[in-house]
């Protein structure tokens, strides 16, 4: 069977599901961030697959560039917040952090 649009969409769907499972089930905040990165990559695969097969050759790739830019900003801010939480609570497990103030 010739590899077409649906193969790429299927790949991104499975990648999205794996990332969502990681976000829901992991206790460590950094692993939750890794799940978010997987979800963003799945969305990027969709953008570029539609750019290739849907006739919009370059516009979809521009969206993917902006997604990568925002992912970098998000990772930096989120890790700074995680480090601050670790300084305050001495843990990064998301189920133990349930106070607004120590």
């Amino acid at each position: 069977m010739q590899v077409g649009l649906s193969h790429y969409l299927f790949l991104s769907g499975i990648l999205f599901a794996l990332g969502l499972y990681g976000v829901i089930t992991r206790r460590n905040a950094i692993l939750v961030l890794m799940g978010i990165e997987l979800i963003l990559n799945a969305a990027n695969i969709n953008f570029i697959a539609f750019a290739r097969y849907g006739g919009m050759q370059i516009d979809g790739q521009m969206m993917a560039v902006f997604v990568i830019i925002l992912a970098a900003a998000e990772a930096a801010i989120a890790l700074a917040i995680v480090l601050n939480i670790y300084k305050q609570f001495k843990t990064v497990n998301v189920d133990e952090i349930n106070k607004l103030k120590e």
Binding site: A51, R52, A75, L79, L83
Partner: peptide, 29 residues
């Protein structure tokens, strides 16, 4: 998928930047 620039940007930013940041996060916490 004919996206060579995005592929290189992916390796540079994700592998070189975001992944290193995550590993630093693991080490510091």
């Amino acid at each position: 998928l004919n996206a060579d620039f995005i592929a290189v940007a992916q390796i540079l930013i994700y592998v070189g930047g975001i992944l290193m940041l995550l590993v630093f996060g693991v080490m510091l916490t």
